[in-house]
C-alpha cells in the first residue's frame, strides 16, 4: 500500500477510498524522539531560523518517510505551505495540490475535492463508503470528547491525543478504533475529576511535549481542544462536501469563533489558553480572539519541540493560580 503524506487535515476519505495510507506528517514529526534534530536538519538545508518549527519538522518528515507524494493545501492552511512544497519538490517529492476556498464556496470546494478524487482515481461511491466507515470511528471520538467535558473522566492529554490523531487515524483505522475504545472503557470506570479549574486550549497543536501533564499537575484540566476537536469532524453530515464545509479550521478566525464561543459556554470553561507558534502568522489573529472572547485569556508561545520552558511554566502557573483565587476573596 502506498503512503500519502499531508500537512493539515484533508479529506482522508479519498485516500482510504483509493486503498492508500494517509500519513499526517505533523504527528510523525512531533511524536518522533528525534523531533529537535529534524528541525536542525531543515536548518542545515537552509531553512531560516525565523521560520516556524512545525514547517521545518514537516520538511524533514516529508523527506525521511517513504511516502508516494505530499498533499499540499495551498489555501486554508499555512502561509508557508507554498515554499515548503516547492523545496520538497526540488528534492524530488511529488506534490498533489488541494485547497479550501477562502470564502467557503461549496462549488469551489467540490471542484477541489473532485480534482483530488481524479488524482487518486476514485469515484463518489467509493469515497462515500470510506466516509461511512470512518464515521463509525468518529462516533467514538465524539463519545471520548463528551466524556472529557461532561463526565469529566478523560484527561486533557487523552483528549488531545485521540482527536489530533483523527486527522489520519494513525494510518490504521482499526488500530485507532481499538485504542480509542479501550481508552473510553477505562475512562468510564474512573471517578469524575473535580476540576478546580477548567481550561480550553485553542490554536494549532502544541509543540511542547508535556503541556497537558504540566497543566494537570497544577490542578487544572483542559476540557476543550479546539482544533483537535475540529479534526475529528464533530458535526455529522451525510456528504463529505458538507463535512469539509462545516470544518472550521481552514476558513479563518471568524469561522473558528462561531464554533469556539458556544463550545466555551457548553463546556463551562474558566479560562482559555491560546497557543501560538513562534513566527506563525496566526500570532496576529490573537488580536481577534482576544477581543471576541470575554473570558480570562492566556496566550502561550512555543518555538521548538521539547518540554514546557520555565517562562511558560511560570505564566501557566500564574494563570491557573489566578483562576483558582478569583472571586474567592483572600
Amino acid at each position: 500500500m502506498k503512503k500519502i503524506g499531508f500537512t493539515t487535515s484533508i479529506p482522508v476519505e479519498i485516500i482510504y477510498a483509493a486503498g492508500q495510507v494517509p500519513v499526517d506528517l505533523n504527528n510523525l514529526f512531533i511524536n518522533s524522539s528525534r523531533a529537535l534534530f529534524m528541525l536542525d536538519l531543515a536548518e542545515e538545508a537552509g531553512y531560516p531560523r525565523n521560520t516556524c518549527g512545525w514547517i521545518k519538522g514537516l520538511y524533514t518528515a516529508a523527506l525521511e518517510t517513504d511516502i508516494q507524494g505530499v498533499i499540499a493545501v495551498m489555501q486554508g492552511d499555512c502561509s508557508n505551505t507554498q515554499a515548503l512544497m516547492e523545496t520538497l519538490q526540488m528534492q524530488g517529492r511529488e506534490i498533489i495540490p488541494f485547497a479550501y476556498p477562502y470564502d467557503r464556496d461549496p462549488e469551489m470546494l467540490r471542484l477541489y475535492v473532485e480534482k483530488l478524487m481524479a488524482y487518486f482515481s476514485v469515484n463518489w461511491d467509493q469515497v462515500l463508503q470510506a466516509k461511512k466507515d470512518l464515521d463509525q470511528i468518529r462516533q467514538h471520538c465524539r463519545e471520548l470528547d463528551r466524556l472529557t467535558w461532561q463526565e469529566n473522566v478523560v484527561t486533557g492529554a487523552e483528549n488531545h491525543y485521540f482527536l489530533v490523531s483523527s486527522s489520519d487515524f494513525l494510518g490504521q483505522p482499526q488500530t485507532y478504533e481499538q485504542e480509542i475504545k479501550a481508552c473510553i472503557q477505562m475512562a468510564r470506570e474512573r471517578e469524575p475529576n473535580l476540576d478546580e479549574v477548567r481550561l480550553a486550549y485553542m490554536g494549532v497543536p502544541p509543540i511542547f511535549t508535556n503541556l497537558y501533564e504540566s497543566i494537570e499537575a497544577m490542578g487544572a484540566r483542559i476540557v476543550y481542544n479546539e482544533v483537535q476537536h475540529q479534526f475529528s469532524m464533530p458535526h455529522s453530515s451525510d456528504h463529505i462536501l458538507d463535512q469539509y464545509l462545516a470544518y472550521t479550521y481552514p476558513y479563518g478566525a471568524f469561522a473558528r469563533l462561531k464554533d469556539i464561543l458556544p463550545e466555551l459556554e457548553k463546556r463551562n470553561v474558566d479560562g482559555i489558553i491560546h497557543y501560538t507558534q513562534t513566527f506563525c502568522f496566526r500570532q496576529i489573529e490573537d488580536i481577534i480572539y482576544r477581543s471576541h472572547i470575554k473570558k480570562p485569556f492566556l496566550t502561550l508561545e512555543g518555538d521548538k519541540p521539547g518540554k514546557v520552558d520555565a517562562r511558560t511554566r511560570m505564566r501557566l502557573e500564574s494563570f491557573v493560580n489566578m483562576l483558582k483565587m478569583r472571586g474567592k476573596g483572600r
Binding site: 511554566r313 511560570m314 502557573e317 500564574s318 493560580n321
Partner: peptide, 17 residues
C-alpha cells in the same frame, strides 16, 4: 521559574501572585 529549582523546605508561589 527562570532557574527551575525549588528551595528545600520552602513553599513556592508563582511570581505574578
Amino acid at each position: 521559574g527562570k532557574i527551575a529549582v525549588t528551595i528545600a523546605g520552602a513553599q513556592k508561589i508563582p511570581e505574578i501572585q
